[in-house]
Simulated assay, not measured.
Amino acid sequence: MSENINVQKIVPFEGSKLSKKEQIATIFNDIAYRYDFLNHFMSLGIDIIWRKKALKQLRSLQPKYMLDVATGTGDFAIMAEKKLHPEKIVGIDISAGMLEHGRQKIEKLGLGHKITLELGDSETISFPDQTFDAITVAFGVRNFENLEKGLAEMRRVLKPGGKLVILEFSNPTVFPIKQLYNLYSSYLIPLFGKWIAKSQAAYSYLPESVKAFPQGEAMKTILTNIGFQAVTCKTLTFGICSIYCATR
């Protein structure tokens, strides 16, 4: 699909010989130590509310075994454990640096018996077919090198009747939110990234990757074409963020 081609064209370092996947792993390794702080700081804490709303979509399902893809430092997995109380959550990510910070948090919280973080690729998930009751992804699908392949892999390891919940940034369309958001994301976010995480490239990539990512009906169509059912999209905070839900 044309939307997927656009996603793959957006990379953190233009001209680099590294694949998008390798570039993403590199920048997240570099900013891992400040990632959680910057998330909350740059969203004014609203990202926590977004995560809670996304997890509410799984409350009626009461999943026992969950997979958190692109888990990063494990924030979403930790919140899922607190809100949904599954028996086990596995988080996978391609950034070893992010996972190390996540494991430290999980150990301090005494959740090592409930949450396991593993180095893993969304496009080649190392679990058998129909393993998980629910799969979550928070702010990670736009970083997939091959969006359709990653989504298809998640469907493969999801049990029949299981649910996928994706939380992802989107582009607001309402005046003046659209204009204010574009100003903030294009100028202030890269500046904050440079000052706080010493990585302007990572936070310049963020708004560009959001602009290129298929949203709303386009994303719903991709999920449906892959074989998901009951696909929905709910926008949050004037369209700055979206929750996509789909059932296997």
Score class of each variant (00 low, 15 high):
131 T>A: 12
17 K>D: 13
138 A>K: 05
91 G>N: 04
130 Q>S: 14
117 L>I: 09
218 A>E: 12
131 T>D: 05
32 A>F: 07
115 I>M: 06
73 T>F: 08
43 S>R: 08
206 L>P: 01
218 A>V: 02
14 E>V: 10
183 L>G: 10
200 Q>T: 05
128 P>G: 12
122 S>N: 14
92 I>W: 12
245 C>N: 13
193 G>I: 00
203 Y>W: 07
237 T>A: 10
177 I>T: 13
137 V>D: 07
54 A>E: 00
162 G>Q: 01
180 L>R: 09
192 F>P: 03
89 I>L: 05
28 F>E: 01
26 T>Y: 12
135 I>E: 04
169 F>M: 14
185 S>W: 01
66 M>K: 07
203 Y>I: 02
125 I>N: 04
125 I>L: 02
190 P>A: 07
72 G>M: 13
87 E>L: 12
73 T>V: 09
95 S>R: 03
44 L>I: 10
19 S>Y: 11
237 T>G: 01
188 L>S: 02
58 L>P: 01
82 K>T: 12
32 A>C: 04
35 Y>P: 03
191 L>F: 15
85 H>K: 10
186 S>P: 00
19 S>K: 10
182 N>R: 12
225 N>T: 06
181 Y>D: 00
224 T>P: 07
8 Q>H: 06
91 G>I: 09
204 S>P: 00
5 I>R: 15
78 I>R: 04
136 T>N: 10
166 I>V: 11
16 S>D: 15
88 K>V: 01
207 P>D: 04
106 I>L: 11
185 S>Q: 08
134 A>D: 02
109 L>C: 11
105 K>F: 11
164 L>K: 07
233 C>H: 14
166 I>W: 09
22 E>P: 04
162 G>H: 07
179 Q>L: 10
239 G>P: 03
77 A>Y: 01
128 P>H: 13
20 K>F: 08
149 K>P: 00
145 E>K: 03
83 K>C: 13
33 Y>Q: 15
95 S>G: 01
39 N>L: 09
46 I>P: 01
24 I>G: 00
142 R>F: 11
19 S>H: 08
120 G>D: 11
168 E>L: 02
194 K>E: 13
113 H>P: 03
223 L>V: 05
57 Q>D: 09
198 K>N: 11
247 T>C: 09
206 L>N: 01
221 T>P: 01
35 Y>K: 00
109 L>S: 06
163 K>I: 03
227 G>P: 09
192 F>D: 02
175 F>N: 03
140 G>V: 06
179 Q>H: 03
6 N>I: 00
93 D>W: 02
28 F>I: 00
139 F>V: 05
218 A>F: 11
40 H>G: 12
57 Q>P: 00
63 P>K: 06
60 S>K: 05
231 V>T: 04
61 L>A: 03
208 E>H: 14
40 H>R: 15
4 N>P: 06
53 K>H: 08
170 S>G: 13
137 V>T: 13
60 S>F: 00
118 E>G: 09
226 I>Y: 09
192 F>T: 08
34 R>L: 06
245 C>Y: 08
98 M>H: 10
147 L>Q: 01
120 G>M: 02
182 N>S: 14
230 A>E: 12
174 V>D: 09
44 L>Q: 13
135 I>V: 12
106 I>M: 08
54 A>V: 05
